[in-house]
Amino acid sequence: MSQHRPTGAPGRASVVPALPDLPEATVARLPEYLRALHHLAEQGNDTVSSEGLAAAAGVNSAKLRKDLSHLGSYGTRGVGYDVALLIEQIEFVLGLTQRRAVALVGVGNLGHALAGYAGFASRGFRIVALLDADRERVGEEINGLVVRHIDDLPRIAAEEPIAIGVIATPATAAQSVADQLVAAGVTSILNFAPCVLSVPEGVDVRKVDLAIELQILSFHEHRKASLTALPATPGPGLPSVPIGLTGTGAQEAVAT
């Protein structure tokens, strides 16, 4: 995905370079660096070493230095990185120099929580529309916004271009909602519904599936439990039991 800094863009034009193609893995880590940098700035830090920033972001320092080199930021030997400048660079790369309009579709339990989350505004986003197909929810006010019917989406998109659509509906409705968002000109979608969306080329979809994340953590819990449950090494003269063999099978192995 090629991006270039437009002429006259805000910021330190002499320092922030035109954007190169960035590896997807690097793009995925930049928000973590930005979060850590904001925290450092709030604590009054003007500079930070690569090791300090890497630790705060939860990555190794070599990977961080390589990621930041894509931005043309190499730090200063013995000093580290300028925190304010690096925040500016990353925010520009991520397109956060303008507050992007977001439409949230689906105001059930999850959607209601997302609509009330104050962190979006501080991270460069503003929710401009709350939409739902349930007419009983239409007219409800959440965090200063009135819920409108999904059929109003084309009118809303005509009034204010929507940069990102967030889908927080049941899986059965998600594809239809995605189709409506695409028809309204939305080319970036964040999908919380547990399903795979089919979208045209040029439309970017990010999927957040909490159940999958829990299943991955379950694997790690299962692995840790299996490691701690390994039998102890038998003492002299005691037969060993093959790993995973229990009950009658274990007794037969010992007898053998």
Rank of each mutant, 00 (worst) to 15 (best):
A103L: 06
I127Y: 05
Y74K: 14
H39V: 15
E159R: 10
A9H: 13
A129F: 11
L110A: 14
P170Y: 11
K207E: 11
I189M: 01
S2W: 14
P154Q: 01
A9V: 12
A225R: 10
I243T: 10
V199L: 03
T172C: 03
L64C: 01
I164P: 13
R223D: 09
E201Q: 10
A55G: 00
L64F: 03
A158I: 08
G72W: 04
M1F: 05
A54V: 03
S122M: 07
P161I: 08
G119T: 14
E136L: 09
A13I: 12
L22D: 08
L96Q: 08
I243H: 09
A158E: 15
G11P: 08
A101M: 09
L197M: 04
A178Y: 01
H112P: 07
L181S: 05
R135H: 11
I90K: 00
A253K: 11
E201T: 14
R5D: 09
N191T: 03
D82K: 01
V147Q: 04
L110S: 13
R12T: 11
F120C: 02
L34D: 06
S14Y: 14
G185I: 06
E201A: 12
R155D: 15
A183Q: 13
P10L: 10
M1W: 07
I167P: 01
I150K: 02
V208S: 04
S176E: 14
G11V: 10
S198Y: 06
T169C: 08
G8Q: 00
R137N: 04
V128L: 07
L37I: 00
V79P: 00
Q180R: 13
F125S: 01
R5T: 15
L94R: 12
P17V: 11
G58I: 04
H149L: 03
I90E: 02
V93Y: 10
L114G: 10
G244E: 02
S49L: 00
L110G: 15
P200C: 02
G11I: 09
L110F: 15
G247E: 15
A129S: 11
I162Q: 05
V182Q: 05
D132R: 07
K224D: 14
G95A: 05
E88S: 02
G119Q: 14
D204W: 12
P23K: 08
V93Q: 10
I162D: 09
I243Q: 10
A18D: 15
G108Y: 07
L96C: 05
E221P: 00
P234F: 11
P200L: 01
A113G: 10
V208P: 00
V203L: 05
L19Q: 15
E136M: 11
V177N: 03
F125P: 03
V196Q: 10
I150R: 06
A168Y: 13
A174D: 12
Q3C: 12
V146T: 15
I212N: 07
A113Q: 12
L85M: 15
V128T: 15
D132G: 07
R223W: 13
